[in-house]
Amino acid sequence: MADFQTSTHRAKWIFSPQQLVEKYRAANQRAKQILEKCGATLMEVDVNGSLSYPEPHMTAKDSAEKHYRTKPLSIEEEQCIKVFYENKLQEVYNNFRFPHKIQATALIYFKRFYLQWSVMEHQPKHIMLTCVYAACKIEENHVSAEELGKGISQDHQMILNNEMIVYQSLEFDLIVYAPYRSVEGFINDVEVCLVGPDAAVKLCLGDLLVMGSNPETASLHMQGNSVMLVMTSLKCSRLCKRQQDLKLIK
């Protein structure tokens, strides 16, 4: 889609850092309440797409035992798990050699999904793979669920079971913007200018993809282009420094 200005991406999915914190807190709080009430939080999706929820405690003894055993995750711990799976998502891409556009789309889906839910409610590994599958569909890079499951030794049915909840959590706003083609060209130019075509120093597009030091929030409160510009300038400044160091050594 050419027009970012009128897109759902811009209208609905860019937040201030404060708004993001509130959303994460709300999801985390809800999961904690379910944990207190039921002793567990994870929802499961069965073969026909139905959700099943944790049962509330029958007795005070059950509650006490379960409460003793399960300690809820903090917001920071949740972020840590999300970043872990965002990096795992890159591994899936490397295995399948998908184009960057699909990688970017899946990553944005994953981030958006966990604006609504806590990782304690929906298994991030399953959601991550479902986001990959959804991104392949929307970007018309047809990969069957079976193929995807086989490629990473996972049950493909789990991908299909979660598909509906992912689309609904994303509110069907599935067209997303990520300026990878232009950035890739820009990076190539920078590499040639700074260190020559044969140099060992390579800018890693994967690093750009996970959005550097603040991977969780960057793509949600900055426009894609801004994220890329910030990250690329960081990379360039490092390259320039490296170039100066090389000159000094010589």
């Binding site: 567990a40 499961e44 139905s50 099943s52 944790p54 399960t70």
Partner: peptide
């Protein structure tokens, strides 16, 4: 995180 899923379940609606 895995511990969070260890519980009995009741069926719910399809989203």
């Amino acid at each position: 995180l895995a511990e969070c899923s260890m519980c009995s379940r009741r069926s719910g609606e399809r989203p």
